[in-house]
Design a binder for these strands. Structure first.
Length: 274
DNA sequence: GTAAACCTGGCA
DNA sequence: TGCCAGGTTTAC
């Protein structure tokens, strides 16, 4: 579910509610996520307060008082991190895998039906999950046309595959890469090494535009995304192509086509995208 | 590259 | 019943 705009939306919604709060208890009800929840998690969190809520790609990083390690959370496909008053908000208690109670009587609940998420306790610099991540898509210094031109050399993979690769740019997933390639006018199946420099610049611009728009609209709720306080996103109403097979292209009215690229459903306009 | 794997839920 | 889903890794 959550790509960069959704994770950023969760971060922003939680930040004012949890920063400065002390962690009273940690209840790991199900440790069997994609990577087992570390046994040390509870001992490291209890008694500490949350000092900052940061995001890197699709990861959330919580800073703790007197603890150099970060509490790192990835939501996988179906994860949620919900803030709720004590005893409230256990709508789907079946998949509430980790429940953290805070000093103000509220809770932070990690809920994840598919259990594709993960939770770590590591220093940022030691974390191999974070070490391999590419630049942030909104980092104008590190992510630009020149950077993509360097990536392009000898890369026969499709442009869609490349943009979804977290080592190349961090935080883009299936929805937003579809949207980005539509805005850039490039078909998802194009081979990266055949994309022109002009098109690379258009892709970079499209990344910045789409990701900024999506954050502004608080992410996309395709089926079940909720932010930290249970609100749905609004960007799904603005999707140009994602999940719109057969619907008219917003620019030329041609029906949107669907193909599989990089094992994922892909949507594009056969007239507007080359 | 492509498929299968992890796991559950929703929909046709 | 079978297929699909916002993610990522692992193995032919």
């Amino acid at each position: 579910m959550p790509e960069l705009p959704e994770v950023e939306t969760i971060r922003r919604s939680l930040e004012p509610l949890i920063v400065g709060r002390r962690i009273e208890t940690v209840d790991v009800r199900c440790a069997a996520l994609r990577v087992p929840v570390p046994d040390s998690l509870s001992g490291a969190l209890v008694g500490r307060s949350i000092e900052a809520a940061e995001r890197r790609g699709k990861f959330l990083l919580f800073h703790l008082s007197d603890e150099p390690r970060r509490w790192i959370v990835h939501l996988g496909m179906s994860g949620r991190l919900l803030h709720a008053a004590m005893g409230v908000g256990d709508t789907d208690a079946r998949h509430d895998h980790v429940v953290v109670s805070l000093g103000d009587g509220c809770r932070l609940v990690y809920n994840d039906p598919r259990r594709f998420g993960l939770m770590l306790l590591e220093r940022t610099e030691d974390c191999r999950w974070l070490a391999g991540l590419g630049p942030e898509p909104l980092d104008r210094e590190r992510f630009d046309g020149r950077y993509l031109a360097a990536v392009r050399r000898g890369t026969r993979r499709t442009v869609k595959d490349v943009l979804m690769d977290q080592r190349i740019v961090a935080g883009l997933g299936n929805i937003y890469v579809n949207e980005i390639l539509f805005v850039a006018g490039v078909r998802p199946r194009r081979r990266m090494d055949r994309v022109t420099a002009v098109e690379l610049d258009r892709i970079v611009e499209a990344v910045r535009l789409v990701i900024a728009e999506a954050i502004e609209h608080r992410g996309s709720t395709v089926s079940d995304f909720l932010d930290g306080i249970g609100r749905r996103g609004g960007y799904q109403w603005r999707h140009r192509v994602y999940d719109r097979e057969g619907a008219p292209c917003p620019r030329c009215e041609q029906p949107i086509k669907s193909v599989t690229v990089a094992q994922r459903s892909s949507f594009y306009c056969p007239r507007c995208q080359k």
